[in-house]
Design a protein around this nucleic acid. Structure first.
Lengths: 190, 190
DNA sequence: CTCGTATTCCTAGCACCGCTAGACTCTGGA
DNA sequence: TCCAGAGTCTAGCGGTGCTAGGAATACGAG
């Protein structure tokens, strides 16, 4: 039946609308401002419609997070492959990562700070997330080799994560960011 | 007047009671479970009494955070000074830091992840926080020297912070923690 | 000892939150 | 034309942080 197909498209479109509305509102005013009532008003439906698409607010945030994984994976890949050599690639990837966290803090929080109930370091993790981590790994590999590559990538990732979250929370001065990044890269053989 | 003095003591004691009740409840059931109603019931007063001590829930969390700064400063100092040499000291400090974050996640979040409106990288920062950072710095100093000491300490701190928060959020497997810590310390000349 | 005053505290309530039961409307097929 | 079922909304539940305003209590003056 054609009407069913059309209906499916409309539903998928509305679901996309919910996720982008949630993301945009969160980036503009923070996750606290993303309430089911405001979200319903934005998509011009009532609240229960949200629950026909997602189990709850957490599931909406998880959807924003998954979208963010794909985004960051692409950003990391382009910045890595565009670099002249391995050292420049790691530098570019590190900057791209922290820039992303800085420019999309709400999305970043949904991805990596907030408890959102997504599987991570398991095969069940979202493919986009595994891809993003893979980009970090490929940026690290040429400089430190294959020994303990995954674990070393995790340490690199954690360092970037710590730098960005502490800076955004006001725990580290913004004006030291470049220098901190440079010192971190130096430690990784940049 | 003596009664005024006694009254002041009672007020100070009640304020301590509020902070410890908030901390204990947060550690036991998470910050979401720390509501003004439950807190009021725990201290056996009504909600408005909380607001005669603190401006709001955030201020209570900030008080818990400041308490945490003092705690972690002491923990870091004892583990640092008890170590045999500089390398062992950095190792001990790193483990003490992540152990603290692991054992008191709610306090740690109040200190370093939640937006709580405390001044950090300024002279107005809580003395206990400056002291805790100072302990990290003194643990790092013998190994990397005085060049860019503060910034290098910040990077070290951020790495520890990233490792702990990502692990606790389920983003990193717990069983890789020791290895990650070892690799981080290796990078800092441990 | 009594009486106003000032402090301390609590009751009750506001606006808002995430979420859901049940009524309503509207569409498509017999 | 009628009915079944899908889709949507209204209304409401129990909870949140926070606060206005009244009750009670302790205090100093006469």
């Amino acid at each position: 039946m054609p009407p069913t197909k059309r209906r499916e498209r409309e539903l998928a479109e509305r679901e996309r609308l919910i996720v982008t509305a949630a993301r945009d509102l969160a980036e503009a005013q923070g996750w606290d401002a993303v309430t089911t009532r405001r979200l319903a008003e934005l998509i011009e439906y009532s609240q229960p419609v949200l629950y026909s698409h997602f189990k709850g607010k957490d599931a909406i945030m998880a959807a924003v997070a998954v979208e963010g994984f794909a985004e960051v994976a692409e950003i990391l890949r382009t910045s890595r492959t565009a670099a002249a050599d391995a050292s420049a690639a790691l530098d570019a990837v590190a900057h791209a990562y922290t820039d992303f966290a800085d420019q999309r803090p709400a999305t970043y929080d949904a991805m990596f700070t907030l408890a959102v109930g997504l599987p991570f370091a398991t095969p069940a993790a979202p493919p986009a997330l595994r891809e993003a981590f893979g980009e970090l790994r490929e940026a690290v590999r040429p400089l430190i080799g294959d020994d303990d590559l995954d674990v070393r990538t995790e340490v690199f990732w954690a360092s970037l994560h710590g730098l960005t979250t502490l800076m955004r929370g006001g725990r580290l001065r913004r004006d030291g960011h470049e220098q901190r990044l440079a010192l971190l890269l130096e430690g990784f053989g940049g």
